[in-house]
Design a protein around this nucleic acid. Structure first.
Lengths: 125, 125
DNA sequence: CCTAAATCTACACCCAACGTCAGGTTTAGA
DNA sequence: TCTAAACCTGACGTTGGGTGTAGATTTAGG
């Protein structure tokens, strides 16, 4: 698949893919002859993973540091202790985020209930 | 309290406070005479709320749209339906984020377990 | 009363994460 | 074979969220 199809399927522009390539986030499976990039399905999966990690608030640099975990053969990963540290740090962050998000959600629900009350009251008069 | 103390207590630079002021996020309680800004405790609370909302991934513009909910008297809020819409949208977003975050956490925990296994195995040999 | 520390405004600059534009090359298909 | 559509690179522009700096003013404390 060429960059056009990949970008469409992944929902990002081809310039974004170029940019990600410079950061080491995705690579074409092949660049024969004159330089057209050809991708396989794993490229799509990488882009989807990148999007997911971005939604969690990771920067592209942070993503670059961990994305291979999701695609390398685990037995081949060098520096397993280091990898473990990174994962643990991310887990801690995720837990903190979960707590904060739950509290925020409760807050929102309270505010929504309050608003409903105020609106009903306003309508009645 | 002057901007120096506020910035120290809130953990942001005074330049950031100026910047937030331009965006309508915080205001000094008073600017007498020659223009020094004087703040009260609610300014600090606003800055803390802003930081919390940022951690949830809201942009400063989005924060500007909702922060008054936390400090205005609810009965005085204009456009309650609009406010309700915003809150509901944020709640939906929060729920989606919670789902994604939980899945990410499960992923992480699996990877961590796998890493522990691989490390134990490597040590044994 | 005087001076050092704090603050003021305004403009410039920074980084991340892209988008736009220009000019040139390549490829697929009629 | 030839042309339109897709692709390439490189340079520059943009937006969000700030930071740095300069030069002037103000204020608090000895």
């Amino acid at each position: 698949m060429q960059i056009g199809e990949l970008s469409e399927r992944a929902g990002v522009s081809h310039r974004t893919i170029h940019y990600y390539e410079r950061l080491g986030l995705v690579e074409p499976a092949e660049r024969e002859g004159a330089g057209y990039r050809y991708y396989d399905e794993t490229a799509l999966k990488r882009l989807e993973k990148i999007a997911a990690l971005k939604r969690l608030g990771l920067s592209l640099d942070e993503i670059a540091a961990v994305i291979d975990l999701y695609f390398e053969d685990a037995s081949g990963i060098r520096g397993k202790e280091r990898v473990l540290e990174i994962l643990q740090a991310q887990l801690d962050k995720a837990n903190a985020q979960l707590d904060e998000l739950s509290a925020f959600k409760r807050d929102l629900e309270n505010n929504i209930a309050r608003m409903h009350g105020l609106i009903a009251q306003a309508r009645q008069k």
